[in-house]
């Protein structure tokens, strides 16, 4: 089965990103495919590579990157939400003349159309949010 996942909350503040990650991991273990994880609202903050959680805590952004690396999952941050919240990839850095980018490995920034596409292409769409 092909899944699309929507994450609407940022890391650490709300359980949504943890639940989404554990769901994605379990789905993969059951032999399913994650077509895309789309991050919207404060959810885009899951894509920062500048987070430094304490050693004894889970590293939420890295955990997403690693899962995506191992299983070729498309991690997409909504561009409109990302721009408002200061999430920047190298292209956005150039386009908006910023002095740095901060996006974690395997994440990319793209339009809301990617969410609609996930809704059309995936056999199941599940939302984790507040």
């Amino acid at each position: 089965m092909i899944f699309g996942i929507l994450v609407n909350e940022g890391p650490y503040q709300h359980q949504a990103s943890d639940s989404a990650y554990l769901f994605a991991k379990a789905a993969i273990e059951e032999g399913h495919t994650i077509f895309r994880v789309f991050f919207y609202h404060d959810g885009v903050n899951n894509g920062t590579r500048l987070a430094t959680p304490p050693q004894d805590d889970r590293h939420i952004p890295n955990r997403w990157s690693e899962l995506a690396n191992e299983h070729n999952i498309d991690l997409v941050l909504c561009v409109a939400a990302a721009q408002r919240r200061g999430m920047v990839d190298p292209d956005e850095m150039k386009r908006n003349k910023k002095d740095a980018d901060n996006i974690a490995e395997k994440f990319r920034i793209s339009g809301l159309g990617q969410l609609i596409e996930a809704g059309v292409q995936a056999e199941r769409l599940i939302t984790f949010g507040d």
């Binding site: 089965m1 899944f3 609407n8 554990l22 769901f23 991991k25 379990a26 789905a27 273990e29 059951e30 399913h32 199941r124 769409l125 599940i126 939302t127 984790f128 949010g129 507040d130």
Partner: peptide, 18 residues
């Protein structure tokens, strides 16, 4: 979580009340 995944497979549609 495995049971959670199975429920989403068994049910064709999902509605998340946030």
């Amino acid at each position: 979580y495995k049971g959670f995944v199975n429920l989403t497979v068994e049910n064709e549609k999902i509605q998340n009340w946030l």
